[in-house]
Design a protein around this nucleic acid. Structure first.
Lengths: 152, 152
DNA sequence: GATGAAAGTACCACGCG
DNA sequence: CGCGTGGTACTTTCATC
């Protein structure tokens, strides 16, 4: 699947405002509304655009505490196991296997410290977890929903 | 600002599909389209809903490499300094000050390892950075765009 | 370009303090 | 009685063919 410069600009438009009309996007990229729609449909079908979502302030819905947890796992732990385990916890908003000391890093979001501690305890109870190292988020400096700029 | 159960369901609807029509959301929460629009406008004005965005597959736009970088800073470094510095780099998709050994954690997304290394070098060149520790992401197991479930 | 749907606006009705 | 919230009616804009 090839993504040209116009596709890039359409994607950038939708990332900036997913509720923009096709006509509005078309005006920005010099295309008619139906032409934009066809491209968007194609991008969605190709999996480039996975969907459209609202950006919600976590604090406003009561989730004020955040942490990154480094997971240290037993020798024979597969990414699939970690994935399955983290998926069971709704507090997990991100999970990645990484190189370095730790085997994985988990991004948690909870209502408060007590809730976070409780989630951490549940994570530590997973059989393959040997130890964890917590980094409580003191302040969120930056968080881009997505990035679409072309690679330099 | 008070968010009631209906607001929660509207938010959940929009997180699931930001391009849903007001009538469609209204059908789900038993409200008329204008009533839904009024609530959405109110939620946006209050900053609960920060905006609407497209969820894009980073790999599809050529950004295949990802890392978390722990930053260790000089004694008198303010969060504002870190924020300003990370904001200058488009590869930074998230930045947080944290408790623990490191002072901050930075989430990077780059085209490839070379691009990542180059970005890391630029970050390390910031005057307040004394050292860094990199965790290259081997696989992304999970990444929720947003969370809206009510705190338990 | 034409048609049907959705967004956006205006105005009125109801319930609560 | 004023304020908040919801509904209906209507106009304009957009999606879709």
């Amino acid at each position: 699947m090839h993504i040209d410069a116009v596709d890039q600009r359409i994607i950038a438009s939708l990332v900036a405002d997913a509720r923009a009309s096709y006509a509005e996007i078309g005006g920005r990229v010099s295309l008619s509304a139906p032409a934009v729609k066809r491209r968007v449909d194609r991008l969605r079908a190709a999996g480039v655009i996975k969907g459209f979502t609202a950006v919600v302030d976590p604090a406003a819905v009561g989730w004020t505490t955040e942490a990154f947890i480094e997971l240290f796992c037993t020798g024979r732990t597969t990414p699939a196991q970690i994935s399955a385990a983290t998926r069971r916890h709704p507090e997990v908003v991100g999970a990645y296997t990484v190189s370095g000391e730790a085997d994985a890093i988990v991004h948690l979001r909870a209502a408060d410290i007590a809730h976070l501690e409780q989630t951490l305890e549940r994570l530590r109870a997973e059989p393959f977890v040997t130890s964890t190292r917590s980094m409580i988020v003191l302040s969120r400096l930056l968080e881009s929903p997505t990035v679409v700029a072309a690679p330099s």
